[in-house]
Design a protein around this nucleic acid. Structure first.
Lengths: 233, 233
DNA sequence: CGAAACGGTGACGGTTTCGTGACATTTTCG
DNA sequence: CGAAAATGTCACGAAACCGTCACCGTTTCG
């Protein structure tokens, strides 16, 4: 496989120890001793996975995780946190910030490699997320980006999820409650009319590109994403 | 109820644990330890619901979901994903791939059963969703759309339900009161003549496509949907 | 033949549904 | 902390939709 792994660790001895072990396991290793360097390296060549020490000079590890999760380009990047032993709080914080796994120090090289492989394996189906294309629209789930005729459409998180869901199930009417269940989540309670408002926002965002008609209202039933124009003489 | 549930899980211990619990809850359980077996079993005897582990050897769980959603025969099959992490990402991915719900491991047996029941309940009204085709007309219940020779016909909600009912029971006369019961609902009270008006509106909507004759009046009895050309002798 | 029954048709008022703009609140981010 | 973005809710108005009725031509049958 020969995956690229970036290791971010400020203690030189530990950094080398990890790097050597990973290289021996067949990974290609990049090194960074602080968050800033890590960000630069990630920007230059997107690695397949990043191993981040919790405690870093300057930007802390968890802060780095947050930063990476915010950027669209690095949102799906597999991250593993290195934390001191027994720090239960850290684990929770780390996972909540968006890390995929954590490894407590001290760790055995074998365990570390196993975790890395597991995360890479787990991520695989996510990376293979299909790009959806219909009616001049292109939606890339991995990049969390929508293109209309090649131009980027600015969408809020909810609008994106809504469009995503509609494009996964096109040519099919979804009631407001179905949309609430599947786009908002069945545990959330919001007014059904809220769907209308987000549909409107989504249409407004698509309208400059002339593709507002893709989202159709079916009176008394719900909404539908459809390539078929409803026109007839 | 005695619904058939197929459990797809590669870990034998967990598979048995789930199976036993479901059987105790009154379900009939089919077992599969990898996606390929699952596909074969589904092909042989369509279960009422499939429980799929997210991580499977070979074809992954989410890939299996996609596969099932593509096939016409299994499109409406209720699916529940078992995911290891509580991560929001997995949930969204799973649901968008077409799963109906997800359950995170570890889970309580009671929760699992509750979820299964909920999904089965939710899916129930989705029977009778097959596309109807007759006399150049195509009615798609899921899309809530009617095509006449491939062109979209604009119908109001009641007109749509009326046409749907007539097409489900073609070549058969329905009295006004029967139509009121089945299309409007037996609890509603409206004049019988109202049916006439809606039939007229439906005919008017179909007329531009030259298919108004599909809905025939049977004097003294009611209305009938028929592909047989009305012969006048 | 003529009255009664029946169904087609156009119109009208009331109701429901949906789009839209505005607003307050929460969340995000620098 | 303060600005900006996102979100949920509401009120208003327009449009779609619905049920009813009156009127009229057609059919039925004594």
């Amino acid at each position: 496989m020969a995956a690229n792994v970036l290791v971010v660790e400020d203690e030189p001895a530990i950094l080398e120890l990890i790097a050597v072990n990973l290289e021996q396991a067949g990974f290609h290793v990049l090194r960074a001793s602080e968050a800033e360097t890590a960000l630069r390296l990630i920007g230059e060549a997107l690695p397949d996975l990043v191993l981040i020490d919790w405690m870093l000079p300057g930007l802390s590890g968890i802060e780095l995780v947050r930063r990476l999760r915010r950027e669209e380009r690095t949102r799906a990047l597999p991250l593993i946190l290195l934390t001191a032993r027994g720090a239960e709080v850290d684990k929770v914080l780390g996972l909540e910030a968006g890390a995929d796994d954590y490894v407590t120090k001290p760790f055995s090289p074998r365990e570390l490699v196993a975790r890395i492989r597991a995360v890479l394996r787990r991520r695989r189906p996510e990376v293979g997320e299909e790009v959806l294309e219909a009616g001049g629209l292109k939606l890339d789930p991995a990049a969390r980006r929508v293109l209309a005729e090649g131009r980027v459409v600015a969408l809020g998180p909810t609008e994106f999820r809504l469009l995503h869901f509609l494009m996964v199930h096109p040519e099919r009417v979804h009631s407001r409650s179905q949309l609430l269940d599947r786009v908002w989540g069945d545990h959330v309670f919001v007014e059904e009319r809220t769907v209308d408002v987000h549909v409107r926002r989504l249409r407004a965002a698509l309208e400059p590109y002339g593709m507002a008609g893709l989202i159709q209202t079916v009176r008394g039933a719900g909404y539908r994403f459809s390539v078929q124009t409803a026109q007839e003489a």
